[in-house]
Design a protein around this nucleic acid. Structure first.
Lengths: 219, 219
DNA sequence: TTATAAAATTAAGCATGCTTAAATATATTT
DNA sequence: AAATATATTTAAGCATGCTTAATTTTATAA
């Protein structure tokens, strides 16, 4: 039985599994999902019992192919909703994530396929994340790097942003910093890891918190 | 705290309150919501505690104005979603009710207002039910009667259908019996309360079960 | 390598929203 | 009006998904 809660756990595990820099530990998941560590251990047992993850106490957990399939499906629903809400229903860039977070758990396959079709089978959501296809495959997309890891004085294009914090999205909106904007890192300050980027002939200072949630691509 | 379950109870109570023929009794609600009578009593206490209904043991319950406001809001979300799903996303007449039943509990006010606007503030859903406005008022609509109560050989137009059973909607679809179809009752059989109606020069037999879920209006 | 710190798990408990079975109140029949 | 039937409520219990506190395992440091 895949409940809203279980779908969110699977999504979170998928998320950590697809990072090179971090893994799906109990603490990470607890932090990500805003629940206690105990809740994670608890759920790990349940998800393991129903064959959606493998789990060895104190060792860690991993999605089974069945679990990954569900995770990708939820992510598909989320990202299609985000794009639909923005393009068709004109919700704000900073609003669509939270709205999709709800809708993703209450959308039939028939409906999501119609949304997919309506949008002409898009590859990316409004935050630049790839949208899993009906068959579960992700569209191909070029390698990206974190803006926080970008080199000085090279030309990049802003292609993706983590959207879990709507305040960050509002912040970027106010700066006019939308996807596909070109930028160059002009300075990096080691004391607080903030950076100065040049966009559209303007210099803008971005905190570490901001730059490590933005992804860029070398032009 | 208005949960999915509470919203469904409020909707059910509202539904029975707006019938002349029946009332919001424990048994009726239990039957409508597919739960035990005990569950109704249980929830009645809770809804009463948070001020959404008045409730006197063994006497019955009634929505407070606060409860009615929530009920109408859920109904608004339901009916707007139904119309949107059908008109924009091309879901079938028989599918939209069940889908809306889920979405209605997970839709922000900002989103539902955008849907309302997108549809140009419609008055009726695809099953002929009036859509509560943002201010909570229902659009005016003419008196209707149950097809099962219609008189012989008079001209009616089919204007509304109860949509809780998707099988009924599929059945009508297959007959080509859509809203705004003109019809005349040609015969009534007392032994099973079935009727014969004439639509588009065709005679069709409808069971009691069907005719008492269809609403018509005299032309 | 042993002590200590950090991470993970278990135990006990809680709220929500159900269930069935038993008890009680109301309605109907005789 | 008493007996019976029906409707409603209460009691006890269960699953889900959390919590905090205590315990156990693993990692880190002296």
């Amino acid at each position: 039985m895949s409940t809203t809660s279980k779908e969110n756990y699977l999504k979170a595990i998928y998320n950590y599994q697809s990072l090179e820099s971090d893994t799906a530990t109990t603490s990470n998941l607890a932090n990500y999902l805003n629940v206690s560590n105990a809740a994670i251990s608890d759920m790990a047992k349940k998800l393991s019992d129903i064959g959606l993850i493998t789990y060895e106490k104190y060792k860690g957990m991993e999605l089974t192919s069945k679990g990954e399939k569900i995770a990708l499906n939820v992510i598909r629903r989320h990202r299609l909703w985000e794009l639909f809400l923005m393009k068709v229903l004109e919700l704000k860039w900073s609003e669509v994530h939270d709205e999709a977070e709800q809708l993703e758990h209450h959308t039939s396959e028939a409906l999501i396929d119609q949304i997919d079709k309506f949008l002409n089978f898009p590859d990316f959501d409004p935050h630049g994340h790839p949208i899993p296809k009906k068959n579960g495959l992700l569209p191909k997309y070029p390698k990206t790097l974190l803006l926080s890891n970008a080199e000085l004085n090279r030309n990049y294009v802003f292609v993706r942003v983590n959207d879990r914090e709507s305040e960050l999205i509002s912040f970027l909106t106010n700066l006019g910093l939308i996807l596909n904007t070109n930028l160059t890192v002009k300075e990096k300050f080691s004391f607080d890891e903030s950076i100065v980027v040049r966009i559209n002939d303007r210099n803008i200072s971005l905190s570490k918190k901001v730059s490590e949630n933005m992804y860029v691509q070398l032009i």
